[in-house]
Simulated scan of single mutants.
Amino acid sequence: MITTTELAQVLFTTTLQPSDRLSAFQIRDAVDERLCSCGGDPAWCAAYVAQEAGDHPETYVARMRWALDTVAGAYDSALAAA
């Protein structure tokens, strides 16, 4: 089972931006697409996130906070609909 933190790391690696107005479906679709492109291995995304945190610490915190909040909302709404 993939955790919210892992999902946020996957979302972090996409081209989606906090300014995009996306539905929960679009967010989950983008996360699924990225996971597939990484062979289903969230560790690849975690390594990318670590690199970005080192290279761009000034933007890392805000983007990760957005990613965490976004996946929490997107996946909570999916569970509530099930």
Results as ranks from 00 to 15, higher is better:
17 Q>V: 08
58 E>C: 04
6 E>F: 10
7 L>E: 12
60 Y>W: 05
73 G>A: 13
72 A>L: 13
74 A>D: 00
82 A>V: 07
76 D>A: 09
15 T>R: 15
78 A>I: 05
49 V>P: 08
68 L>V: 07
78 A>G: 02
59 T>D: 15
30 A>R: 03
16 L>P: 01
50 A>F: 05
34 R>I: 10
1 M>F: 11
29 D>F: 12
77 S>D: 09
54 G>V: 10
78 A>F: 10
12 F>D: 01
44 W>A: 12
8 A>N: 01
72 A>V: 10
6 E>R: 05
27 I>V: 15
52 E>F: 11
79 L>Q: 09
64 M>D: 10
22 L>I: 01
63 R>M: 14
46 A>C: 11
71 V>C: 10
9 Q>C: 11
51 Q>S: 09
12 F>S: 06
21 R>F: 00
4 T>P: 01
44 W>N: 03
58 E>K: 07
42 P>S: 15
21 R>V: 03
2 I>L: 12
53 A>P: 00
43 A>N: 15
70 T>G: 02
17 Q>N: 14
48 Y>D: 00
23 S>V: 14
38 C>V: 13
41 D>C: 14
77 S>E: 03
2 I>G: 03
2 I>V: 01
63 R>G: 07
64 M>F: 11
19 S>K: 07
68 L>I: 00
37 S>Q: 08
24 A>N: 02
58 E>W: 08
51 Q>D: 07
45 C>V: 12
48 Y>W: 01
77 S>T: 02
11 L>Q: 10
77 S>W: 01
67 A>C: 15
10 V>N: 07
71 V>M: 14
65 R>N: 12
61 V>N: 04
56 H>M: 08
24 A>I: 00
22 L>W: 00
37 S>A: 09
42 P>G: 14
33 E>Q: 06
46 A>F: 05
9 Q>P: 01
68 L>R: 08
63 R>W: 06
11 L>R: 14
66 W>K: 12
12 F>P: 02
22 L>C: 01
58 E>S: 14
52 E>N: 08
37 S>T: 01
18 P>S: 07
39 G>F: 02
10 V>D: 03
16 L>M: 04
62 A>P: 04
30 A>T: 06
71 V>K: 09
26 Q>I: 08
31 V>L: 02
67 A>Y: 13
1 M>H: 15
24 A>P: 00
49 V>K: 12
76 D>H: 06
44 W>Y: 13
16 L>Q: 05
67 A>K: 11
19 S>A: 13
66 W>V: 13
54 G>P: 04
12 F>W: 13
81 A>M: 08
51 Q>P: 06
52 E>P: 06
50 A>C: 05
18 P>C: 09
33 E>L: 06
26 Q>A: 14
79 L>T: 02
33 E>R: 10
3 T>Q: 05
13 T>M: 02
24 A>C: 00
60 Y>S: 04
3 T>G: 09
21 R>A: 03
33 E>T: 10
13 T>V: 01
36 C>I: 15
72 A>Y: 14
50 A>E: 12
22 L>Y: 00
82 A>Y: 08
28 R>W: 04
55 D>K: 08
63 R>A: 13
7 L>V: 03
14 T>E: 15
